[in-house]
């Protein structure tokens, strides 16, 4: 006899899981303030006797950096979870579908042709790039009937390739200084964030989270397929546009300031689903928290592992995300095989 696969109703444990995750996130975030090339003593911090250098390191380097990691992680986590529900696909994620590459292309274009010269003035270009990519994806998806998994990923791959090619062309026209700014995109980093950038990221990330959470019940009904969701009272047209706009906007802003932070949009939601089941009303908030946690941890690793050399955080998140992706693909294949 085989044991019956059980998916227990986990609503009671949801509040508990979310509070624990938030607790861990707060703890890790505070602790991470002390990690880096310049050590900060917790004794001095708690007794309020920090030196000027330490205070300045903490306030103008560490704090904005941790907050940027939190905002970026939460954004990618919640956007990934929402896109997976919207596209009805476990592999949908801003990165795999080419949204950050499109944002990078938009930003690079504005940098090279419109002489935008700091990360603060790159975000309109990034936003336009990300939005165009998101709506292109949606336009293709709406032509397909349900279950267009392969097509979606192929479109994502094509979009990614097209944007990468565009990026290569634009880069070849860039000056030395522009190239250095652009290199930042490819690697991803939470360092050197201004308080203005941090404020922008936090507000857009909270806004996107609020928008997506409002739609979490509609996204939940989409699990049954678009047709059934519609007969249950879900208005698909508005839903698609709202989710696309929220995701594109938040991902574009974060990408504009932090570059491409890979795989958080995949790892965050899938870990969240393992903990609380697949209902988006539970997955979305938890995916944001877990995404934030992964980013803060990745950032600590990035600045501590080879200090004083700083490692690109995008590479660290890939190292975390790739095994999760592979495990997912393998377990998915096994699940489908068992079902047949």
């Amino acid at each position: 006899m085989f044991a019956e696969p059980v998916a227990p109703s986990r609503s009671r444990s949801f509040a508990k899981t979310l509070s624990i995750a938030l607790g861990v996130l707060s703890l890790v975030s505070v602790l991470s303030l002390g990690v880096g090339t310049y050590p900060i003593s917790w004794g001095d911090f708690l007794s309020g006797s920090l030196g000027d250098t330490e205070r300045s390191v903490l306030l103008s380097l560490r704090a904005p950096r941790v907050l940027a990691a939190l905002a970026a992680g939460a954004t990618f986590g919640v956007a990934g979870a929402a896109m997976q529900s919207l596209f009805r696909n476990a592999l949908a994620e801003p990165g795999l579908l080419g949204v950050p590459t499109a944002a990078a292309l938009g930003a690079a274009t504005s940098l090279v042709f419109l002489s935008a010269n700091s990360s603060f003035s790159l975000w309109p270009g990034a936003l336009i790039g990300a939005s165009v990519a998101m709506f292109a994806l949606l336009a293709f998806i709406q032509r397909q009937h349900h279950g267009a998994t392969a097509q979606l990923l192929l479109i994502g791959v094509a979009l990614n390739a097209a944007c990468a090619a565009g990026l290569a062309l634009v880069t070849s026209l860039a000056t030395e200084a522009q190239l250095r700014t652009l290199a930042f995109w490819m690697l991803g980093s939470f360092s050197n964030q201004s308080w203005g950038a941090v404020a922008a990221m936090i507000s857009v990330s909270l806004l996107a989270m609020a928008m997506l959470l409002r739609d979490s019940r509609s996204l939940g009904a989409l699990a049954l397929g678009e047709r059934t969701a519609k007969t249950l009272g879900v208005s698909l047209r508005g839903l698609r546009a709202r989710v696309a706009i929220a995701c594109a906007f938040a991902v574009a802003i974060v990408t504009a300031f932090c570059g491409s932070v890979a795989f958080i949009g995949l790892a965050g939601p899938h870990i969240a689903r393992l903990l609380v089941g697949a209902q988006p009303s539970r997955v979305l908030p938890l995916a944001a928290v877990i995404g934030a946690l992964l980013c803060v941890i990745a950032d600590v690793i990035a600045r501590a592992l080879a200090a004083p050399v700083e490692l690109p955080v995008g590479a660290i998140t890939s190292f975390i995300g790739v095994p999760i992706l592979l495990a997912l693909v393998v377990s998915n294949a096994r699940l489908r095989a068992e079902r047949l």
């Binding site: 696969p5 998916a7 227990p8 109703s9 997976q84 009805r88 696909n89 476990a90 349900h146 279950g147 019940r217 509609s218 939940g220 009904a221 699990a223 049954l224 397929g225 047709r227 059934t228 969701a229 007969t231 249950l232 009272g233 879900v234 689903r273 089941g277 697949a278 209902q279 079902r339």
Partner: peptide, 23 residues
């Protein structure tokens, strides 16, 4: 309406599945 539905993307308990009747 009960018509053909695509397979579920993620696992969902039968309780949650039925409660989606009133999303």
């Amino acid at each position: 309406l009960n018509a053909v539905e695509p397979p579920l993307t993620f696992s969902l308990s039968v309780f949650d599945f039925v409660s989606l009747g009133r999303p």
